[in-house]
Nucleic acid binder design. Sequence first.
DNA 1: GTGCAGATACACT
DNA 2: GTGTATCTGCACG
Length: 195
Amino acid sequence: MGLGLLSRDFFDRPAHEVAPELLGRVLVHGEVSVRLTEVEAYGLPGEDPASHTYRGQTPRNSVMFGPPGHLYVYFTYGMHYCANIVCLPEGHGSAVLLRAGEIVSGLDVARARRNGARDRDLARGPARLAVALGWGREDNGLDMIGKVLDGSPPASVLAGPRTGISTGADTPWRFWIEGDPTVSPYRAHVPRRRG
DNA sequence: GTGCAGATACACT
DNA sequence: GTGTATCTGCACG
């Protein structure tokens, strides 16, 4: 298991290069640590229609235009938080969404936050991962340098289309560890009907 | 295991 | 006003 920390240079690259190399590495936040098993890359303004930065900088996505290695936390569906790590130098607007992981430290704290969930489901899905780690609005912009542990690469990494998005779904920028039980099930985007 | 329906608040058009 | 990088609970097999 890794003892080293990832440097800022690690994130100073395109998100689709950073994303697969994050798999198997460990995020530390307070008492809880998570080994990443599933991530997605989101690209540049004007290039990736699924990215929050596709239409340029807004107050919400401004952290994505900041320096690499910082945490971009956003609120969605009226009740969920999701977290990304910013890639590329300041001014670009790209990040890796943290989709799922395995709790490797602070299991009791994570269980309490995810009341009643089975261990494999504690961080299975981006909103669940944010809850397990205790991330919220106040962590938007948090510098993750020093909180991402180096580690040995997973045995096998697969790539496929991204999850739950209506555009850009054909780009294979979702990466996961083959056979890992904590990888979230794929769901195609389902537009919500008005009542 | 699969497949819906509904909840919910915010950013952006 | 419209759409959302989701989750939970329930049905069914």
